[in-house]
Design a protein around this nucleic acid. Structure first.
Lengths: 354, 354
DNA sequence: CTGTTAGCGCGTTCAA
DNA sequence: TTGAACGCGCTAACAG
């Protein structure tokens, strides 16, 4: 049988309460007593019963990190960074930082939130773009409200603020403790401006999945740049955030406009697919067609040619979200901070061909 | 305040026990009663208290998936696959599949195992190579033993079987319910044979971190192929599993042997770094030097030239590990199944230059 | 500084 | 098919 607190107490000849106190380290305990207790713990291979502890204390040490696609380094980097800030909490109660993969499915997102609510999670971090379906957005907002009520800290990372219908009194920022939102629109706009400056006038755009905030914002930035320059928008194709999608979409773009001189992709992975498609078509990058991505994932630098893209400080943002979730860092004014991207000009973009 | 089982019972005018029964669906309950209870649950926005439930039932619905590096798709793909098999359990008790990022640190690995033991996890999946340090291996084996004793199913995926000192009676396979091990040695051997067949005789090798099973097995396969062919081993450099490491190691290899005609890398990411280094040195791939990787991650196909590598069925293996952890699939004979890799010959390897 | 006393919210006997 | 009673293992008052 597994040893319990009482067993340890008996062996150390103290009361269960004392054992609890040395384990949690929240109360003063005589050094000698502590010593004895720790020895007993060791001898019995005692491990705290998490559920019992959580039940009694009405809090748990679970922290959930929701990601859309765990196989995508975009999320892996953020999640890993957040986790490293949460796990390392020395001295205090060890938190169990845990990542949940929704696969982009709205149902699974809600399921995971419910499961975390069940566990009375200490905090929840939602990463990446959100679905724009109003019904689902409302369901998530409601869920987050209930989590917050129960004392769970909710942090958003790389996701726009939740629109919170102010139905109650003016409690402030709704259920979300802090939001780190990415400036997808601005980054995308600067990227397209870069292409325009290189003389490109016929630019195809490979957008992400429809109904997603990230997709829309990046597309809006692109269009804003075109509009400002008085350039007519080129063809747009939607797809998922993977390489295959970029490949197929590029062929479709070429079908729609043979004269394209540049392709802007929803992200780096898609951009790589685009490069592959162009090569297979016998088109040189950037000689015939320039290609640009977004995010600046590690592999983008190694592509041939290296990818022009917008660098998002994913690690830093994830780490900050982790600290915010742990209450280790002050919440930004208004609860919202915008994280900006940096244009990285590399070999995949060049002057437009005549 | 959050609603409790008792609140629901009061509203539905039944006993708490009955509510528990409809929620868990393990006992017969009259349809009309169930209906009333479910309505009450809905009206009160009731969510089961996980800790209380786990305490009473002495089991939890948490399943832990340990990975070495969550930002690496190698692990992301396996973890995502496992999670998808675990999450979708319809009808039964919803499991919370959760991934824990050890970052390759032995301490964090043990910490996470303890945390999962605390939570009385239903199952634990350990993915990827293990550290070969005997002390740490023993500590992990002991931990797994305690987990198994407490009823946690332990599954290994992409990791060699734990050597289990048979100290007790012949209980069989030790604490591990099932092991899916990758045939790193065989795959590596076939890869090197491929290079030998192309006429390469001076082959550099970029190994992974020292003291890791994956590193050793892949290196052994490589050496076995050389020995069989009677070819002298070339230079070997160790590094981490990232692109930078591949870049630096390649420069070092060239320093040690100017006449190298091929470089074998610990994995695809490292291979990409190697390609970059060669290019920067003015060497063509595969014209001057052939390059090969391992794993066949999605981006490897898109590299220029596309990477010759060994394809590991990561998704399938992860999914199978997930099913094994859930007891949805029969354990392989002896508790151990070997997953083989497939040699993928692509553009990055060619005939050795004269 | 330490022991005693109550529950935390739920699952699971036992009866009915 | 349902209800009553007990206890899971621990923390948090309150004494001492």
């Amino acid at each position: 049988m597994t040893a319990t607190l009482a067993d340890v107490a008996a062996r150390a000849q103290v009361s269960p309460a004392t054992v609890s106190r040395v384990l949690n380290g929240n109360y003063p305990v005589a050094a000698a007593t502590r010593e004895r207790v720790l020895r007993a713990v060791d001898e019995l291979d005692y491990v705290l019963n998490g559920p019992a502890s959580s039940l009694a204390a009405a809090t748990s040490d679970l922290v959930g990190i929701l990601v859309n696609d765990i196989a995508d380094p975009f999320f892996g980097i953020m999640a890993g960074a957040a986790q490293s800030e949460i796990g390392g909490e020395r001295g205090a109660r060890e938190k169990l930082a845990v990542v949940c993969n929704t696969g982009g499915s709205p149902e699974r997102e809600l399921t995971y939130l419910t499961l975390l609510q069940r566990q009375r999670a200490a905090a929840v971090i939602l990463t990446g773009g959100a679905l724009e379906d109003p019904e689902h957005a409302a369901a998530v907002a409601a869920k987050l409200g209930r989590l917050a009520e129960a004392g769970t800290r909710v942090v958003l990372c790389g996701r726009p603020p939740v629109s919170w219908s102010v139905e109650g009194s003016g409690s402030g920022g709704g259920p979300v403790a802090a939001t780190l939102t990415f400036d997808n629109r601005g980054g995308s706009q600067r990227l397209t401006e870069h292409l325009l400056a290189l003389g490109h006038r016929r630019i195809g755009y490979i957008a992400g999945p429809e109904e997603r905030t990230t997709t829309r914002h990046r597309l809006e930035g692109h269009r804003a740049a075109l509009a400002t320059a008085g350039v007519a928008p080129g063809p747009v194709v939607h797809g998922s955030y993977d390489r295959r999608s970029g490949y197929d979409a590029t062929l479709e773009l070429l079908r729609r406009d043979q004269e394209l001189t540049a392709v802007v992709a929803a992200n780096d992975t898609v951009a790589l697919g685009a490069c592959a498609a162009l090569r297979d078509r016998g088109l040189a990058v950037p000689g015939d067609v320039s290609v640009a991505g977004f995010d600046d994932l590690p592999f983008s630098m190694d592509a041939v040619p290296a990818l022009t893209t917008v660098r998002l400080p994913l690690y830093e943002a994830g780490a900050r979200a982790g600290r915010l979730a742990m209450g280790k860092e002050p919440v930004p004014p208004g609860g919202i901070a915008t994280v900006h991207g940096e244009l990285m000009v590399r070999g995949s973009t060049g002057r437009a061909r005549a």
